[in-house]
Amino acid sequence: MIELKNIVKTYYPQKSTEVKALKGVDLKIEKGEMVAIMGVSGSGKSTLLHILGCLSKPTDGKYFLDGEDMNEAKRKQVYKIRNEKIGFIFQDYGLIEDKSVLENVMYPLAFSKNVKFLKMKKTAQKAIADVGISELARKKASKLSGGQKQRAAAARAIVNDPDIILADEPTAALDSKTADEVMALLKRLNEKGKTIIVVTHDKRIADMCQKTYVITDGCIKEDTQ
């Protein structure tokens, strides 16, 4: 379970360029939920996602992940959580273009203590099969279409079998048909028990999720419509 209490994030504090990206965000996401966080560009949704993904720390407030205070967590613990509990999907896919899909998907396993070296390949192949692109495993990421890349990114996100998948604008660079396919994939993962958090500015995408939160000027509220 994810719980944020009065999260504040300020960039360049006490400088003339100070930016308050989040101004006291409270959020609770239960395990197995599929949640959309909507907001216009610059509203603070990506900042929120980075905090949820333990990629940056809040300036103030508390973040509990499965009851553990992430502000107090040691670095090693944070690295472990990022590796084992969270999978990331980004708008720009975040793939290493010169590497094959298989290699890209294997990277998170290289930093995991749960999978042995000799089983890395097999585990990665299974994740690739789960997102339906087994035939592309040997292809370089640069040779894939947008939808295929996002599936490869999804395979990398799930390869360590994390509980949470954070998707930052996963469909923004895709046409609507491909976007639907990617969302269907995320839904399927959600049905398998994964907590999915999708950051989007697209209402149609948000509607595919169980809950939608809207973030405006660093403040969040649930969209009940």
Partner: peptide, 16 residues
Amino acid sequence: IKSYRIYRMYGCSGAG
């Protein structure tokens, strides 16, 4: 650099 960012995202430490 892009690779390093991805490694870090997936739990690799700075020392790593």
